[in-house]
Each structure stands twice: as structure tokens, then as C-alpha cells.
Design a protein around this nucleic acid. Structure first.
Lengths: 193, 193
DNA sequence: ACCCGATCGAACCGATCGGTACCATCTGTG
DNA sequence: CACAGATGGTACCGATCGGTTCGATCGGGT
């Protein structure tokens, strides 16, 4: 059956559906851990459609990573905004968001870092670097509102804690990782003002 | 020419030479970024020899990772031992060692984390987890000597800083990363005793 | 001096990969 | 009702991959 029985033909919708369905697959199996053929089968899409929308597998990968970075950054910003004006509360919100991802059964580490480690091509590394810059912006903002003497330094140190917590949660177990990282972050925050 | 012109036939030596030469190649190109054929060409070894020593490519990969973990752990322990009895000095020695690796021109992030992200097989993840455990032992030891109220907590937080610093150095530039991480570590150390 | 074993080089294998081409079929539009 | 475009299904392609095999050759222990 060349086209789905009751499916709506809408290129934009198809593209979004491919992105949504491919994201967890590429994350759990690894960028090179699943081939285009299997990917299309699990997605319920033909290879021709996938290639028409994304050009190459790498195009799909980059689109997935960009969408993921946007989504994660947005949800983090919303959590911070909802935490109120206190920098300490905002930090707590940050590590709460991350702890929730650590506790997910499919958690396999930071998707952006994994992608950069797997795919040795420049565009992917650039997407990852931009993603970390977004984290850094959020954390530096908290540092500024806390009145840190050197908010850029504190922001960078908080970024290390965030990424380090993700690494530790990945390879050393997620239990209490967010809380331990938060306590360290609050110590740095208190010492920097 | 079936066997090298003036080479000594010594299986143990051959195996060690393969390990040494394969380590930087697999690190810089990625575990799946270089094939066995090219690997053997660059190593100056035949495929038969490689497979006789390591069984499979995965066997070579795991041997390389184990050897690397041993070497890094040893050099870190030596640096800490040479830093004297002061925990603060020992922490400085730790981040000095890491900063030196960040500054290497071929630096591409933590080899163990990259391997775990690339190779979705259990043994590799186990080697990475054991590597982090070794780091944790060293850092917890420093926390204990510093008289920390909860040395295991402080050790884990220091581990986050170490791994986070490596991530930041990888994707956000190595400049001053070790120093920034050290200052955060010293703050945690001072607050925990 | 002899012989076992380690080694090289090259050919070879089956599987899988990313990507392309073609066609029948369905949807949405006018 | 008719047409254009989006899609699914399938077969196919060249390249590359990990791994095996075989014969020729050389070093080292006996």
C-alpha cells in the first residue's frame, strides 16, 4: 500500500512525526546503532520519504539534535522561571529537572554529548557546543541574580556541576545525584556572593 | 615479506606494541571511525596477527580501554602522592593533571566516556564504570584526609567537578578550565570540613 | 642445523550500510 | 471528476565492514 489508508498527506506533519519518532530511537540505540532501513520500518515511513525530507541520514540526525536542544532548553527555562526570584530556588529547579531525566528508565546520558562522541563531524559538534552555551546562559543568569562577584566564573562552575552530575548519573547510578549536585551548587553560590 | 626484516618475534612485545599504537588511533578517530583493515595498515600489523592476539575488534577495544584506565589511574595516583599531605595541594595536583590532558592538541574528551557513548555493549560500559570508581576512590581519599563530615558525598561532588570540567574543556574550550574547577573544588573542600 | 611458531600479505566471504530508482496508490485541490 | 504531489513498498547498487583462510617467510629455542 503506497500511502497510508486513512493518513493525511501533509509534508510538515510527516516531517514532525519522523522527528518525534526518530528522537528516542537514535538516543537509545546510538546514532550509528540503527540503520536507515530499520529506522524507516520502525517509523512506518519509506526511505524515499525520509530522504526527501532530510536529504541524508546526517541531515536527520542534525534535525533531531536541534529539535531536542530546543525542547530541553525551553523546558529548563520554564522550570527556572516557575521557581520564583530566589537564585537558590532556581538552582533547585534546574537540578530537579535533570534528576527527572536521570530517573527515566531509558536514560543513557546526555543526548548531545553522546551524539558528539559518536559522530565525529563538525556540524554535530557545533550543535552540542551551542547546547552547552544555552545551559551556560541560564546558569550565568542565575549567578548574576545571586550577585556573584564573577558571574561568568560561577556560571561555568555550575555548568561543570550540571554536566558532571549527568555523567555520574549515567555511569554511577542516578540515585540522589541531583541532590548532591544541588548541595554543591548552593555551596558555590553562597561562597561567591 | 611475511615477517618483518629485523623484527624480534615476541608475542608479548607484539601485543604491547599493537595496544600502544592502537590507543591514540581509536581515541582520535572513534571506536567505529576506523576499520580493522586501516587499523592494521597504520599499525604495520597483519589482520591475522591482530585477531590472534585479541580475538575480535571488540577484544582489542576492551584491552585498549583497560590499559588506558590503568595508565591514567596510576599517573593520577602518582601526582596526588607527589603533592604532599595537604588535601588542597592534592586537589590542585589532580586538576593540574587533567588540565594537561585538556591542553593536548589531540584532546577529544574523556576516552572512557566517549567509548561508553559509542559502543553500546556491556563490557565497555563496565570498564568505564570501573574507571569512574577509581577516580571516586582517589577523590574520596582526599575528602577523608581533609576531615570532611561526609567524605563519600564530597568525593562524589568532586567527581562531578572533574568529569564536568572534562566535558566543558571538550566542548567549551580548555582555557582555565582546570583552574576554575579547582577553585570550585577548594570551595567545597573548605565548606565540608 | 633443524623445526615450530609467529608473522605478513593478499585474497576472499557474507552481511550490512547509506543512498537511489521505479511504480502503484492514495490524498487534497480545483 | 481529474490532476498533481506525497507516500509506501521493493528491488537494487556500490562500498565498506568484521572476520577467515592460506601460503610464503623468517626468528628463536633445542
Amino acid at each position: 500500500m503506497p500511502v497510508a489508508k486513512g493518513s493525511t498527506i501533509d509534508p510538515a506533519r510527516t516531517r514532525a512525526a519522523i522527528l518525534d519518532a526518530a528522537t528516542p530511537l537514535l538516543y537509545e540505540r546510538g546514532l550509528d546503532g540503527i540503520g536507515v532501513a530499520e529506522l524507516c520500518t520502525l517509523l512506518g515511513v519509506s526511505k524515499e520519504t525520509l530522504y526527501r525530507h532530510f536529504g541524508t541520514k546526517d541531515g536527520l540526525v542534525q534535525a533531531v539534535l536541534r529539535a531536542r536542544s530546543d525542547r530541553v532548553t525551553r523546558s529548563l527555562a520554564e522550570a527556572v522561571a516557575a521557581a520564583g526570584p530566589e537564585p537558590a530556588d532556581q538552582l533547585a529547579a534546574v537540578f530537579e529537572v535533570f534528576q527527572r531525566t536521570y530517573d527515566e528508565p531509558r536514560f543513557r546520558g546526555c543526548a548531545m554529548l553522546n551524539a558528539a562522541a559518536q559522530h565525529h563531524v563538525e556540524p554535530v559538534r557545533a550543535i552540542t557546543a551551542r547546547h552547552l552555551d544555552r545551559y551556560l546562559d541560564t546558569l550565568t543568569g542565575i549567578a548574576e541574580r545571586a550577585g556573584a562577584a564573577d558571574p561568568h566564573l560561577l556560571g561555568r562552575q555550575l555548568l561543570m556541576l550540571v554536566e558532571g552530575a549527568t555523567v555520574v548519573a549515567t555511569h554511577h547510578g542516578p540515585a540522589a545525584t541531583g541532590e548532591h549536585a544541588l548541595r554543591a551548587a548552593l555551596t558555590l553560590l553562597a561562597a561567591a556572593s
